[in-house]
C-alpha cells in the first residue's frame, strides 16, 4: 500500500478503506444516472409509445454473446484481485489484460451491431426506441472504455508492485458496468411486450 498523501487518506473511522468507500459512493451516484434513463425508457414503453416494437429488430444472439463476454470478464477481474491478494503480481497483470481483451471483444460486437443497424436505417433519430437504444448502450460503452483505460493504467503499477488496492476498486467498478448491462440486455434485446 502506498503511503503517499495526507494522513486523512489513510484514516478509516468506518473500518472501510477510503478508496473502496469512495468507489461505492461513485457507483451509488451512477445508479441514479442509469436508473433515471431506465425509468424513462420503461415509462415510455409502458405507455405504448410507437416504435418500441422495434426491440424485435435487435439481435438476441449478439446481445447474449456480449452478456457472456462481460460476465466472463467479471470472472477474470475477480481472478486478478485474488492473484494480487496472494501477491502474485504477474498473474494479476495477466488477468487484468484478459479483462481488457474481453472489453475489446464487447466493443467490437457493439460496433458490428451499430453499423448493421445504421445501415438498415435504424438511426438514432428514427424513433424513441432507437434514441434510447443508442443513448443507453452508448453511455454504457463509454463506461466500458473508461474502465479499460483505467485498467491499462493501473496494470503496470501492479506489476511493479504497488497500489495493489486499485485492482479491487476497478473490479468493483467493472462489476457495476456488468450489472448495468444485465439490465440493458433484457430491456433492449429480450423484452418485446
Amino acid at each position: 500500500m502506498s503511503t503517499r498523501g495526507p494522513v486523512a487518506t489513510h484514516r478509516s473511522s468506518t473500518g472501510i478503506p477510503a478508496g473502496r468507500l469512495a468507489v461505492w459512493w461513485l457507483l451509488a451516484s451512477e445508479i441514479f444516472i442509469f436508473g433515471g434513463l431506465i425509468a424513462c425508457f420503461v415509462l415510455f414503453k409502458l405507455n405504448g409509445t410507437p416504435g418500441f416494437e422495434d426491440a424485435s429488430e435487435t439481435s438476441v444472439v449478439a446481445g447474449a454473446f456480449n452478456t457472456f463476454v462481460l460476465l466472463t470478464s467479471s470472472l477474470t477481474v475477480v481472478l486478478a484481485h485474488a492473484a494480487v491478494e496472494r501477491g502474485d503480481r504477474e498473474k494479476a497483470f495477466t488477468y487484468i489484460w484478459y479483462t481488457f481483451a474481453a472489453g475489446i471483444v464487447f466493443l467490437m460486437v457493439k460496433v458490428y451491431e451499430y453499423s448493421g443497424k445504421i445501415l438498415s436505417g435504424h438511426t438514432i433519430t428514427e424513433n424513441l426506441f432507437w434514441s434510447f437504444y443508442y443513448t443507453m448502450t452508448g453511455l454504457h460503452a463509454l463506461h466500458v472504455i473508461g474502465g479499460m483505460v483505467v485498467m491499462a493504467l493501473i496494470s503496470f503499477d501492479v506489476r511493479k508492485g504497488y497500489n495493489y488496492q486499485r485492482v479491487e476498486l476497478i473490479g468493483l467498478y467493472w462489476h457495476f458496468v456488468d450489472l448495468v448491462w444485465i439490465f440493458l440486455f433484457p430491456l433492449f434485446y429480450i423484452a418485446n411486450f
Binding site: W25, S29, E30, F34, G35, G36
Partner: peptide, 11 residues
C-alpha cells in the same frame, strides 16, 4: 445531491 442529480444528468 448525489441521489437526485443522476436522473437530471441523464435528462
Amino acid at each position: 445531491f448525489m441521489a437526485s442529480v443522476g436522473p437530471l444528468i441523464a435528462g
